[in-house]
Every structure is written in C-alpha cells, then in structure tokens.
Write a protein that binds this DNA or RNA. Structure first.
Lengths: 192, 192
DNA sequence: CCCAAGTGAGACATCAGTGTCTCAATAGCG
DNA sequence: CGCTATTGAGACACTGATGTCTCACTTGGG
C-alpha cells in the first residue's frame, strides 16, 4: 500500500503535511522541525521518515507549490475570454494553493541557491503574459507594469490567505476581495 | 558621547543596522547573527554589544518599525482632505519604512507572545479608520472591508519593497505603483 | 600627544535543533 | 487471528548557532 502513497489510513497524508507546514513556516520561518511535526499532527520521527531533513522539506514545499500553481494556471485557461475573466478564474483556482504560494513568495531564500527558480520564472512569465494581454487589448491600464501586477497578485494572495487564517477576512470572501481590489481598486468609480 | 547615541563617527548607526537587518531578515528569516552583522557592515561582536541577542534584535526591529510607522501616520494627516489624498500621503511617507514594515508584517511570530501587538493594533486601527472614512464619504467602495484594505496596503507595501529590492520595480515608481493599484486597480475604467 | 571609547577578529563553552536509531504500540490485511 | 507495515516516543551523538570573553587596533577628544 505504501506504493500508492495514500489509501492506508495509518499512512501520513504527504500533501496535508506539506500544506500544514507551509501555513506554519510562512508565518514562523524559524519554526522547529518538531513544531512542524506537531502542527501536522504527526511525530518528529515520522516527519523525518518522509522528508530527509529541513532542506528536503522546503524543497518538497517548493516543488508542490510550483506544481499546484502551474495546475491552477492551466485550469484557469489564461488565454480564453477577457483578461479580467481569466484573472478571476486564476484567483479562484489559486485559493486552495494560497498557503503554499504565500510560503513560496515569502521564502525568497529558495531562489538564492542557483536556479530552481527556473520553474518559478516560467510561472511568473505566464502570469505577466496575462496582464500584458489585458493591456494590449485595452482592458487593463498600461501605467502599471505587468511585472508589478504579477507581484501584486502574489502579495495580495498571500496577504489574504494570512488575513483569512487570522480571522480578519471571511474565507468565503477570499476570491472576491482579491479580484475586486486587484481589478478595480478601492476607489469608487462613477461608472461602477 | 555615548549618551548621545550618535555623533561619534566610529559609533555604529543603530538605525542603519536595524534597517539592514530588517531588509535581510524579511527575505531570509533564518539568517545568522553573523550574516546580519556582515550585511550591516559590522562585526558580530559589535552587533552583540548593541543587541543582547537575536530576540533583542527582533524586539528592537519591532519597536523601531512601530515607532516609524506611527510617525508616518502622524505626518500623513489622515483626517485632512479627501481619503485618497490622505492615502497617497501615507504611501509616500511609508516608503522609507517599507523594509521595516515588510519585516513586521511577515514576522507574525512577534505577535504570538502576549500583546506587544497593542502598539500594532493601534496603528492598524488608524489605517482602517482612514479607509472607513473614505467609505463613509462615498469616496471608497463599501464592498471591500476596511480591515481587508488595511491588510492589502501592508501586503502591497511589503511586496513592492521586495520588488524594488530585486529590481523588478523601479524605486522611483514605488509610491505610484502602490497608490494607483490600491486606489484604482488594474482595470481601465472609461472615466479615467 | 595621550587617553578613553569603540570596534573587529578570534577563541571558547554552551546549547538548542538536527538527524539517526531503537522499541513498543497500533492499524490494516490476509 | 497472526503478520506486516507504519507510527510515536524517547535516547543519543553531532553539528552549527549563540553568547561571552579577550586582545589588538583605530578613532576622536582633551
């Protein structure tokens, strides 16, 4: 059953552990392996059986985050319909990955090594391309660079994930708050 | 001269050290005391002379961040003029503190202890009050809660500070990018 | 010019976190 | 009902960061 990676009730749910770890580490990067294990509801020994060490854990977090974010990008079909529609689909699809994404964005130390950021750079380019498309089609303003809009999206997703975690924003408002702020801003326009 | 806290050229510039430390620690929370010292251009021993330990350093970071952010809030005169004007003044005044602010927002572990967050909660309330005023005066939309707008401001400031640090956003665009996105969003309105 | 203050570099003991191990207990499966 | 796989708890040594100390050097003031 171990070859399945899941299915056995007594077997640790690898993804669940990683999500919990991301939520904890993104808020307390100095958390102990023991704290991570406790947060995930498993023993330190078990955590070590699945991830050779702290580095391996972080790498796994990185890999899962990139993988899931890429899946969200695929599912959002960024080239279909208006850029606004695509962005809303992206925000919706990113919600389950928000914790992971917050960790990736925060833990900049991942990208100091060499270039595991290759994977990340590719995702970055896809998001930026969406904003560029919106600008070229006259849908988005051109005075905010695609690079900044991309970073802002990441920042807002992470911030909102934390706000939800701390109860400052209702979980059901996650998509709305991010998409509306990013698209329309705080100002009340006359045509809205 | 030590009673002045400054003035002696060979004396370490305490605030400069803290700013450097904030910039480093907000991007690599696991950085060593030695790394912090090197980044600040001083020896580890000297760093230890000024801050008893890592905890003391973080506390000092917290205190300075709160103090300077509060000063920025005062200087922005949040009750004067339109809410938009006040927000733009705040963003402008916050720019020099952006690194410190990014550290405070990211290092949530500060607020796990007891309630040094009292100081933070007060600042939080002031910012939220600005957004609430904007809403009550019909200037801001009411479907985005003041609490969320407050968090979003923090998130965007931190994100933009990092983007500038990494060269993805030009330093001169700091205020514009944040204020414009936060106020108007990415969408190109017909009345703009 | 000399002295006090401050600094950097390094040595050192200490300690918390890490990684590895063993062992008893438990859950699923035949 | 055993058997196997997996887990949690604990013991253990080890590594790296930490905090403290000394000492030589430099700077600025008297």
């Amino acid at each position: 059953m171990s070859h399945l990676g899941y299915g056995c009730l007594m077997t640790v749910d690898r993804e669940q552990v990683l999500r919990t770890a991301a939520a904890l580490l993104s808020r307390k990067a100095t958390a102990t392996m023991d704290e991570v294990a406790r947060a995930a509801g498993i023993g330190r020994a078990t955590l070590h059986r699945h991830f050779a060490g702290r580095d391996a854990l972080v790498r796994a977090l990185e890999a899962l985050g990139i993988q899931e974010f890429e899946a969200a990008l695929d599912a959002a079909r960024l080239d279909d319909g208006t850029a606004e529609e695509a962005l809303r689909r992206l925000v919706a699809g990113v919600e389950p990955v928000a914790g992971l994404l917050a960790f990736l964005v925060t833990e900049n130390q991942l990208f100091e090594g060499d270039q595991m950021n290759e994977g990340w750079a590719r995702l970055d380019a896809r998001v930026a391309a969406l904003f560029r498309r919106g600008q070229e089609q006259g849908e988005f303003r051109i005075d905010l660079t695609p690079a900044w809009l991309t970073e802002a999206l990441y920042g807002l997703v992470g911030t909102c994930a934390w706000a939800v975690q701390d109860g400052r924003v209702a979980a059901k408002d996650f998509q709305y708050m991010i998409a509306e702020l990013l698209l329309g801003g705080a100002r009340r326009s006359v045509d809205r």
